[in-house]
């Protein structure tokens, strides 16, 4: 399956960088699904779980409010905060930690 380059950045670290097959993000205006060669897009993302599908398997990230920029088969997620989590349950816990701030 075609892949695209995904970078997840916070002001404090690079959380993820690599080629992925698909990305699902909780957009402010609704769920966003991104596949390779997506049309250029700039979207605001709310606090939630990011699903990333790669050849090697799935990955989950708990993200705080962020911006997603897709341009020329590359996507950059600029997040206030992001952590990789094992599954959706762990993501919920990570969120509660973010809300507590």
């Amino acid at each position: 399956m075609a892949t695209f380059h995904l970078t997840i950045l916070t002001p404090e670290q690079v959380v993820f960088e690599g080629d992925v097959e698909s990305l699902t993000a909780p957009g402010v205006a609704g769920c966003l699904g991104i596949l390779a060669h997506h049309t250029p897009l700039l979207a605001a993302v709310r606090r939630g779980v990011l699903h990333v599908r790669r050849e090697e398997g799935r990955k989950y990230f708990a993200v705080d409010e962020s911006f997603l920029h897709v341009n020329g088969n590359a996507a950059v997620l600029l997040a206030d905060a992001a952590v990789e989590v094992a599954d959706e349950h762990a993501a919920r816990q990570a969120h509660e930690a973010m809300v507590r701030g």
Binding site: A29, T39, P40, A43
Partner: peptide
């Protein structure tokens, strides 16, 4: 605007 989709 012609190039980019904006959401919201």
């Amino acid at each position: 605007r012609a190039e980019h989709l904006f959401e919201p």
